[in-house]
Nucleic acid binder design. Structure first.
Lengths: 168, 168
DNA sequence: TTGAAAAGTCAACAAGACTGACATAAATTG
DNA sequence: CAATTTATGTCAGTCTTGTTGACTTTTCAA
């Protein structure tokens, strides 16, 4: 019902999106995501950590001092789930949890020196793969990649997530 | 050490890839993958199935009659892990496991009518999101998206996986 | 015939999600 | 000020999906 192109809006007609082309995109996402997580996963094994730890470390590094609730919001997991990971990271000395200045109920999360070191090791590996993919694909491809991914994010989260920029 | 661009090859110099741009790509992958799996996940809940079931169903539909070993190879999990899922799907009447014609040790996997129905429901949802993203992004963006993702796949798997085309 | 391969199974374990219930401290509101 | 809400943390139990290791059956191939 897609191949005879009634019912398609203008942009879809321009693209001629067959189910087969869409399926290729779907599989590409599946296999690429596996590649995307492969390098950090290997590193994390040496520390007996998992992806959950990586994600926490990434976003704490990304927005130093963010609160637990803010992190929960970004990660989209329950506080019990995050807490397990966070407790480990704090007791292992990778994350520092400081009582909030304005609101003493809140906890502001920071990476310690050790935390920053691990974050760097993980993100170096991930950037290396991303850099290779970007380089092989070329400038225009990169822009296209970003645009499609942005549109794949849930509309509710899109704004929140794309406006995350903190540091640089 | 990336910002002062020594040590970069030609294509990287052309792209001017800062760590910050790469980090944006990384986060885009994270959030987009979440969107990518969100719709099927909702559907699967109604059947008390998970992503593992979805993946099996997807690739059995993709290459009807493929063997257990071939599926293991694609999915990259242990046979014990796959077997648990497969056993459910077979006993629930979604997958048919037939003794191999040439080699009777093998099992050829097929979707039943019910399996095809569920596959369609799942892939419709996923294609819908993919179609929207593609349409909003435009033709050139789609090509770029595909190119970058292809390069993000593990080099070992890349060939194997991109040459999967079976049906259409 | 002997050994290897394909598939299946049992058992135990771990990570990382979930729900539900409850506790504490601090802020906010009436 | 008292009552309520918010932010965080924790305990306990469950589920899915992955893992290792050991073992069996059937079948093919040398």
């Amino acid at each position: 019902m897609n191949t005879l192109h009634h019912q398609m809006d203008r942009s879809e007609q321009l693209l001629f999106l067959t189910d087969d082309q869409l399926r290729q995109g779907i599989e590409l996402m599946f296999f690429a995501y596996r590649g995307f997580t492969a390098d950090p996963d290997l590193i994390l094994e040496n520390y007996a950590y998992g992806r959950a730890h990586h994600r926490a470390i990434h976003f704490i590094n990304r927005k130093p001092g963010l609160t637990v609730n803010a992190l929960l919001d970004i990660l989209g997991v329950t506080k019990q789930s995050l807490n397990r990971v966070l407790r480990q990271l704090v007791s292992d000395g990778l994350v520092d949890s400081r009582i909030g200045q304005q609101d003493r109920r809140q906890r502001n999360l920071f990476l310690t020196e050790a935390g920053i070191t691990l974050e760097r090791e993980l993100s170096e590996a991930q950037r290396k793969r991303m850099r290779k993919a970007y380089s092989s694909a070329g400038v225009e491809a990169v822009q296209g990649f970003r645009t499609v991914l942005e549109h794949m994010i849930d509309p509710n989260l899109r704004e929140k997530v794309l406006n995350l920029p903190g540091e640089s």
